[in-house]
Amino acid sequence: MDRLTAMEMFVRVVSAKSFSAAARQLGVSKSVVSKAVAELEDRLRAQLLNRTTRQMSLTEVGQAYYDRCVAILDQVSETEQIVTSGSRCPRGLLRVSAPMTFSVLNLGWPLSDFMEQYPELSLELTLNDRVVDIVEEGFDLAIRISRRLKDSNLIGVKLSSARTVTCASPKYLEQFGEPQHPRELLKHHCLRYSNLGPAQEWSFRDPETGDPIQVAVSGRIIANNGEVLRAAAVKGDGIIAGPSFLAAEDIRQGRLVPILKEYAAPPFGIYAVYPPNRHVSAKVRRLVDFLKGLWGENPPWEEACDVC
Rank of each mutant, 00 (worst) to 15 (best):
L229M: 09
G296S: 15
E80L: 12
N106F: 06
E174N: 08
Q200V: 10
V14K: 01
R278L: 09
N106R: 13
R163G: 00
R68K: 07
E39W: 01
S20D: 08
G269P: 08
G62W: 02
V273M: 15
A36M: 03
V83E: 14
S87W: 00
N128P: 03
N195L: 06
T52E: 05
S112P: 02
R192P: 12
M1G: 12
Q200G: 10
S160F: 14
L94W: 08
A233V: 03
P182D: 00
D74Y: 13
G219T: 10
D289V: 09
H181A: 05
T79C: 02
L191V: 00
A272G: 14
I251E: 01
Y274E: 15
D289I: 06
E302K: 02
S103Q: 08
R45H: 06
A248Y: 08
H188V: 00
V14A: 04
A241L: 06
G242K: 01
P182C: 00
S203H: 11
G86V: 15
P207R: 04
V104T: 06
K292W: 04
C69D: 10
R95Y: 11
S15G: 04
M100P: 00
P275Y: 05
Q25E: 10
V165G: 00
V257R: 10
P182R: 00
E39I: 04
G219M: 15
E227R: 08
T79Y: 09
S103C: 09
S122Q: 13
I239C: 06
V132P: 03
T53R: 04
K283E: 12
H279D: 06
F102L: 06
M1T: 08
T164M: 04
Y263S: 03
R43T: 00
N298K: 11
